[in-house]
Design a protein around this nucleic acid. Structure first.
Lengths: 197, 197
DNA sequence: CGCGAAACGGACCCTCGGTCCGCATTCTAC
DNA sequence: GTAGAATGCGGACCGAGGGTCCGTTTCGCG
């Protein structure tokens, strides 16, 4: 297990880069506006340091995103109901979607940066796969629901970062209203006799 | 009305560029792989000609897309049921979505190129707006359905080019099966007492 | 302290979208 | 037909941004 611990300056620089990147993404509008050189400069570091630590732009964003996501992932994988695995499917599905939506609302810039990372589609990321398989597994436990796989994709498509950004950032839909809409939509999918709200 | 007709060579070049671009996008995998220089070369034309005719990359893709889309837009705006405006909402919504899905299936490369045009989100294009307002208007005529606006967004998100590409191109879901899934999903949204299939 | 390894940083390279400008083609007026 | 103006042409050129190279610095350990 050749897991050598990194040098102290390397660790410090890595942290500085993460902090700087976080700030910059949070502050700027479109994530495209934040360049690698900007981040390096803001962190007081050379560009190569940044690429050495994270491989490439995608890697850096990925790392940032993962850090933010971790608590939620924990709550989903081993937390209490309604998010955790012991919740009954009909409660857990809306809880999962709401949690994911809230996460994207709270991390719009990052989510946008991650999903819009140039050419590669968001559907090839490990993040998406995790959400999708979790959701699909839960959906499969709902008897009358066919197409769990597609349904999971469709529900997740509903909270894609750019759509959320469009609704909240551009059209100023209030956060709670968006959550309510998503909840109503989800309910409709889950239960054939959906409440009329 | 200073609508001067273009010179003959200009028209010819414009057509050549469109044809070349169409071919290249159809032939290559990711649309990012097709550069403006490639298109110019394939059309036997200088780069400036290409930019003069279409403004920028987005403009070119937009033009291509619009050309392909026109027949469908006609069918939607003034065609017969179930696509046309005289169809009853409960039939027209699935018809609209199916038509849009089929269009994306038939024009994966273009749709992908358009939606993935660098930084600007697909939600700011005129295409999307048109689909969205059409769909929303129809949804609003369905009595028990609240949130027509959000629902329209959600349903359209279901057929986003990159998702379609992921399902069909990467996971090899057959075309007809995807259509069936979408139909089932739509039905669930439209009618609280959805068929159990 | 000394020395090898690890990390640093910024100059550098490359690709790609987009522009410039001197030259060629086409239209129009006679 | 021809002259002159307008329009279009094309490829060299530019700037931005992601990613790399390599001489120099820093770290950690004996």
């Amino acid at each position: 297990m050749p897991e050598r611990k990194p040098r102290k300056d390397a660790a410090r620089n890595r942290a500085a880069v993460l902090a700087a990147a976080d700030d910059l993404f949070a502050g700027c509008e479109s994530p495209e506006a934040v360049t690698m050189a900007d981040i390096a400069a803001a962190a007081g570091v050379g560009k190569a340091t940044l690429f050495r630590a994270f491989g490439d732009r995608t890697g850096l964003i990925h790392t940032l995103y993962e850090a933010r996501l971790e608590p939620i992932r924990n709550a989903v994988e081993q937390g209490p109901p309604p998010l955790g695995p012991t919740a009954p499917p009909l409660q857990r599905v809306p809880a999962l979607l709401d949690a994911a939506l809230c996460f994207k609302l709270d991390n719009r810039h990052l989510a946008l940066a991650l999903e819009g990372t140039g050419g590669d589609s968001p559907y090839q990321t490990e993040h998406y796969d995790r959400w999708h398989s979790t959701l699909r597994a839960v959906l499969e436990r709902i008897p009358h629901l066919t197409d769990a796989d597609f349904t999971a994709h469709a529900l997740l498509a509903t909270i894609r970062a750019d759509l959320v950004e469009h609704l909240v950032g551009r059209q100023h839909v209030p956060r709670e209203q968006l959550r309510a809409h998503l909840a109503a939509f989800t309910a409709r999918i889950l239960d054939p006799r959906a409440p009329l709200s």
